[in-house]
Design a protein around this nucleic acid. Sequence first.
DNA 1: ATGTTTGTTGACCGAATGGTCAAATTCGAT
DNA 2: ATCGAATTTGACCATTCGGTCAACAAACAT
Lengths: 204, 204
Amino acid sequence: MGRVSDAKERLLEAVRELIWTGSYGSTTIDQICEKAGVKKGSFYYFFDSKAELAGVSLDLELSEKRPIWDGMFSPAVPPLERFDRLCDYLYEEQREKQERFGYVLGCPLFALGSEVCTLEAGLRVKIQEIFALWVMYLESAVREAHTVGAITASDAKATSQMLFAYSEGMMTQARILNDLNVLKGMSMGIRQILGVKPPVLVEV
Amino acid sequence: MGRVSDAKERLLEAVRELIWTGSYGSTTIDQICEKAGVKKGSFYYFFDSKAELAGVSLDLELSEKRPIWDGMFSPAVPPLERFDRLCDYLYEEQREKQERFGYVLGCPLFALGSEVCTLEAGLRVKIQEIFALWVMYLESAVREAHTVGAITASDAKATSQMLFAYSEGMMTQARILNDLNVLKGMSMGIRQILGVKPPVLVEV
DNA sequence: ATGTTTGTTGACCGAATGGTCAAATTCGAT
DNA sequence: ATCGAATTTGACCATTCGGTCAACAAACAT
């Protein structure tokens, strides 16, 4: 078996934080090593480039997010409520980042994808795949919401596509403006795109 | 007066293309100089950092775009048609970029803003200002469209804000996927957000 | 205990990077 | 023609960057 180490994990954690709080291009291997407390020799023992490290960190990101998505979009949750949970989750996530780093960081995949899509084909493809998977969650919820009769939007494919663009646009705008309040309008915007029918009011 | 030169303009042109086709962080001063056909000494004669050059290039971007925006959103154009013109313009712009560079490049401001907002405060502020101006065009058109009775959306502020997030999200998605077809759905999406009332059909 | 595998270290390299400068050049103005 | 302002040039510098390597250390298996 030989010697054991968590240097690999520390490198992965470091690169994620550096890219998210800064950018891919401005993050150097030296920086990553320093933040991870790992010497450069060890870096090259585990990975052979920044791009490969970032690629593995995307795998990690996906494996962490999937159970969260599965929870939010569980079939046990009424379809419309899934979107509420999503908004709450995103807001809370961003609030925490702002508290910790002083910045609203937005969506790590969208920012990274936009930055490197013309430069790092491997990363671009991985990000595309994650997005395709993510849209499946949205599409399924839209379809179910429509089946249940909760929304007017009938074209699940087109609607989920709209929701994706809108929500990512909102997250990125929040990042650029460094303003959490942007996200407060997201729930309403999503409901409008979905064409949520007004709930039956109950007298108290 | 002394010697005359267009080196400054060439540098501005070079940096815009390099950032747009690649990224801010991956663009070096040496690269900019080479593409502009300018020696590094001259670069530092005109600018004192990459950030300052990028800042001036944003001023240039705005001064070029304003007349285009003024044309598309002219009061002489029916409010709803302004959005059609916008979609056509964006599609044509991206089509041209893809033909020239092999990539759909998306919105240069959104991509740059997302990349540098935590790193370059000066650029972040400038981009924020341009966005604020741009949303004014959207908001005005939404307000007029509603006044004219062409759309159901009544809250011009919230609606223009949604349009902004959605359209920027679409442009960035087109960049990440390097797919022009993404943009084909934009006109419909905008109409849905606006709540465009079905036009009165005329028998032929 | 001893070899074997796995991970660590620090020194090292060449290239690229941001940045400076004094000298040379080119133009407009007088 | 020539003076002065505006621009160009190429050489130069220190630092940082990505990347390599041989030697070393720690764990496990036998």
